[in-house]
C-alpha cells in the first residue's frame, strides 16, 4: 500500500473536523472540578504507604546507599 493510498484511506475513515465549538458553557464544570476536594483513593494511600515503608526499610538496612542516592540527587 502506497503512502498516498494509506493517507487517502485515513482521510476517508477520519474526516477533518473544522470550526466546531463546545456545545455549552464549560466554565461551571471547571469551577466545580477546581473546588472539589482532593479525594485520595485506596491505591493512592497504598502507594504512598509503600513508598514511605520502602524508604524506611532502606534507611534502616542500607544507610550508606541512601547517602549515595542523596549525593546523586
Amino acid at each position: 500500500m502506497s503512502d498516498d493510498r494509506l493517507r487517502m484511506l485515513l482521510h476517508s475513515a477520519f474526516p477533518k473536523l473544522e470550526g466546531q465549538k463546545p456545545s455549552h458553557d464549560l466554565w461551571p464544570l471547571i469551577v466545580d472540578r477546581v473546588r472539589a476536594p482532593t479525594v485520595w483513593s485506596g491505591i493512592d494511600i497504598s502507594v504512598a504507604a509503600g513508598v514511605v515503608a520502602g524508604v524506611a526499610i532502606a534507611f534502616l538496612t542500607l544507610p550508606r546507599a541512601l547517602l549515595l542516592l542523596a549525593y546523586q540527587l
Partner: peptide, 14 residues
C-alpha cells in the same frame, strides 16, 4: 468526538 473533547477540555483546564 465533540462530547469527549468537552470532557477532556475540562480535565485539561483543571
Amino acid at each position: 468526538d465533540a462530547s469527549i473533547a468537552e470532557d477532556v477540555l475540562v480535565d485539561a483546564f483543571w
